[in-house]
Design a protein around this nucleic acid. Structure first.
Lengths: 329, 329
DNA sequence: TTGTAAGCGTTATCAC
DNA sequence: GTGATAACGCTTACAA
């Protein structure tokens, strides 16, 4: 494998000049540049990024820790992150946090100089970093999840407003017993969306009923469970608002198994706007999150942060997508 | 940020000893080890992987180039790769090849010393590497796609056999006009599965009809297009075999729009065994590919290859999953 | 068992 | 505009 030395030898210049030619071509003379470029081709030289990184003290790599790669909601976000990353000469290391302790392993990489920054995608702040919240954190952006104190730059939509809008839409269509399927645990995201739901109820004087709230995983099984639960209620809801399309898909499926027809007997509202929603039966009414854009903006924020700029929160627009799973009561 | 020097100073040893303590603790004396370990804690020392990698001439990083992150078929495979990778102290750099030229950018990383090996996931061999096929390629494993000459280690299922099995199943149920939705382009994967389809027909003396083959993208829209096409035929098929569940989902949806009931009027067979298939309406009969296992084995193969061992092909078992979208003619 | 010192391949500083 | 040279932080002969 050819190194700069080989190129330098062949071009009859010093390695310093080779380096300059590669990094700042206009800083060397025309003839030197040509000679070096020729030598690079002849030797088949490729830069050793390791060495460069060590010297420059940067890796041009970012780590994305995602709560579950399998969740299709994240894949487009990752795509957006990746697009923005390569466009700016960054590499993306992917970390799946669906197993215990993995978030720690991956957030370590910033300290071991394998990455310049960290994106937490739908993942709460790992413990070791939490301890450092008040001192110095590495460049870090959260996407689609919040730190309770909101001290960390976050990219996402206005979850409270979106959930409120979704609920209002159901109310407008005459529903007042509205089931709500949240995510598991008491993470800030769930709290936000639940708050939007409550606000919509309150605005129309519909009493809040604890019984209508159920926490489930963001997947079809979670939705199925929720549907069964609601069905077992003495007075089941006439509409169900899921915090994720993946849950809504399970609700749809389970409703069908129970002989409940959607939207005639039950309205189902999703959240996320996954492409699959247009292919469900019935097609899924939902809140669209601009996923690719979320990814791009997240990466942009992180790059700001790595440049030392103060990273600020970024709120992207969502959109109510009206399709076939919600109807008038 | 503390370096070995700091640790060495504090522990009153040389940096060499610090290094030894970290890499091979049994090679230093008990007391030294304890002193060093203490100093590591006190200084908050973290190793600089860049420097280590440069010195050791390895990165413990692999690149996974995937044809489209968005395709849910790949996400579980990536998960398997990632699991096996972290378990063996490797990092995964994720590359999406859905845009032009990206496969090249990512396969370059092996040459610029940012990765030790390369996984091509559903991606054909990039041009620059193709040129080197006969000389020396870097450690490389293909998954779910083949190099025409089969010179490269490949991990996957027996696609020909699986497609044959799927088709045979349809034939057994009385179908003899069977539409086939392949992937786009004439990549080896498509060829394999098409061959299995043809073999099943031939075995039962059903004439092959070019009209019943249509190439579409591996997504629901592709399936929709295919369904419309088949519907326009003078003599439409009574069953459709899709090379991907994602296509089958589109077929299901489009059939519904056309008022064709599945499986009563039309049988639909998928391929891949995505989780979503159990939630379709009707539930999808399909061929299951062991995706997480495919990922793990792929990573294992690559590690073999990086160790210099001869990487061989690995064929994993598939399974026909009978659900609700296929019925007797 | 431990220290010395060279070297991995690059880049930045400083002369010339 | 170019060349020497030191340095980035670590590992590993080789010596002690």
């Amino acid at each position: 494998m050819a190194t700069m030395k080989d190129v330098a030898l062949l071009a009859n210049v010093s390695t310093a000049t080779v380096s300059r030619t590669l990094v700042k071509p206009e800083s060397v003379s025309e003839t030197t540049r040509l000679r070096v470029e020729q030598a690079v081709i002849e030797t088949g030289y490729k830069i050793n990024s390791q060495a460069r990184s060590l010297r420059r003290n940067e890796t041009r790599t970012v780590v994305v820790v995602v709560s579950d790669i399998d969740n299709p909601f994240y894949s487009e976000i990752i795509k957006g992150i990746e697009q923005e990353a390569v466009a700016n000469d960054y590499l993306v290391v992917l970390g799946d946090a669906s197993q215990q302790e993995r978030d720690r392993i991956y957030s370590e990489l910033v300290y071991t100089r394998q990455a310049d920054g960290l994106i937490l995608l739908g993942v709460p702040l790992p413990k070791p970093l939490k301890a450092k919240l008040n001192s110095s954190l590495p460049p870090l952006v959260m996407a689609c999840e919040y730190e309770p104190d909101r001290k960390l730059p976050t990219v996402g939509i206005d979850n409270r407003a979106a959930a409120k809008e979704a609920t209002e839409y159901l109310i407008k269509l005459g529903h007042h017993r509205i089931g709500c399927v949240t995510g598991m645990g008491d993470n800030p995201l769930t709290v936000c969306r639940l708050q939007g739901y409550k606000e919509a109820l309150a605005a129309t004087n519909i009493p809040f009923d604890e019984q209508l709230i159920v926490a489930e995983a963001y997947n079809p099984d979670g939705g199925s469970n929720a549907m069964r639960y609601f069905h077992s209620l003495a007075e089941p809801p006439t509409a169900i608002f899921c915090h994720a399309d993946t849950q809504a898909i399970g609700v749809l499926h389970q409703a069908r198994s129970l002989g409940i027809s959607v939207p005639e007997q039950l309205s189902v509202m999703g959240f996320d706007g996954l492409p699959i929603g247009s292919y469900c039966f019935p097609t899924l009414t939902t809140i669209l999150q601009p996923r690719v854009e979320l990814g791009r903006v997240t990466m942009q924020s992180l790059m700001d942060s790595m440049k030392g700029l103060p990273a600020r929160d970024r709120l992207l627009p969502h959109e109510l997508i009206i399709r076939g799973s919600v109807a008038m009561r």
